[in-house]
Design a protein around this nucleic acid. Structure first.
Lengths: 184, 184
DNA sequence: GAATGACCGTTTTGTTATTTTGGTCATTTT
DNA sequence: AAAATGACCAAAATAACAAAACGGTCATTC
């Protein structure tokens, strides 16, 4: 395996384990069995390397979302499935889960920026699927995708932060079909 | 004016000016021209006093929301008006604006809890208006109110955190009538 | 020419001394 | 007698400083 891939692998591992800030470039170099200077021949700086890791994680997430799509299902059902899968990925994937935790605990600009990229990727994915499946929609697909994403986060992730009584997934999907997806 | 009101007035003023954590009980006592001990004859502790201030602020917000309702308007239009007004209040009112800032900058449990109460109050207000205006709704009004609140926050407050291109209020209200309010 | 680690200025962390804080309660004021 | 008060206390926050760790560079090595 070439050195760049070795570095990427080591960085993904250590970032996932300790988070962005708590991982030192020395640590990554040691894990990759590479001199520290070598890292800087492939990446401009620590954040640039971080960016590369996050980008490939986003690709992985999108692939998982594609895999869950069903050509025979309605656009609404596919949007639902894709969103649920991506939100699950966001909370399950070692790196992303670690970054969410790190963002809450500290207030690192770098981590915040990366999580924002993840958000944008999800919205963009939904938007593209939406405008492909429903080409002559009167509403702006970007606004619609953003609304769907924010609504899913609100119900799947944030509901429990505000209310004791948890919300099971059946209730959520039923409610969404009664409200959000009504006009779709 | 009696001492309790004097204390409440002083606390509201200093909390609004310096935030919760940066305001000391001594400071409030001085501002209220009252001995520190007197404060503790009316309130169990600093947070209890804070709570009282926030509760009355919430009442003020709800009153402003009621004032904006129009009996001859549709339930959707009234929900829209009330939400816009309450979100505006949240960002305009000295105390709440200060607390939002404080919550972002530090991670104080007390401030977080209070802002959560504000959120709950907004959702509850919308829920009550909704079930009064539309008594035989097939969807749970609490879920609907929560969806509306979260959607308005997403578009009115959070959109600019993710995208450069700002969203004018006309576009937002038009979009909501095409999507969220379609089934209402 | 690619890889390296000793090296550098800066930032973060650990430590201790000092100050400020929320809350109490014996005393004073009404 | 009841309400008000501020000196007082343990605990928490802050300041000041030393020491360690950090991201990034670059002369040297491979």
């Amino acid at each position: 395996m070439d050195r760049k891939q070795e570095i990427l692998k080591a960085a993904a591992k250590t970032f996932s384990l300790y988070g962005y800030k708590a991982t030192s470039v020395d640590q990554i170099a040691r894990e990759a069995s590479v001199g520290k200077g070598t890292i800087y021949t492939f990446f401009a700086n620590k954040e640039d390397l971080f960016q590369a890791i996050v980008l490939s994680t986003i690709e992985e997430m999108k692939q998982q979302a594609v895999r869950v799509l069903d050509p025979s299902a309605t656009p609404a059902e596919n949007a639902h499935k894709a969103l649920i899968k991506m939100l699950e990925f966001r909370e399950t994937h070692q790196l992303l889960a670690r970054l969410i935790e790190e963002e809450r605990a500290t207030k690192s600009k770098a981590v915040y920026d990366m999580m924002q990229q993840v958000e944008k990727a999800i919205v963009e994915f939904i938007e593209q699927r939406l405008s492909r499946a429903l080409p002559d929609l009167e509403t702006d697909p970007k606004l619609l995708a953003y609304l769907l994403y924010k609504s899913y986060v609100a119900f799947v992730v944030e509901w429990n932060q505000l209310y004791e009584q948890p919300l099971d997934e059946k209730t959520i999907s039923q409610f969404f079909h009664q409200s959000l997806f009504k006009g779709l």
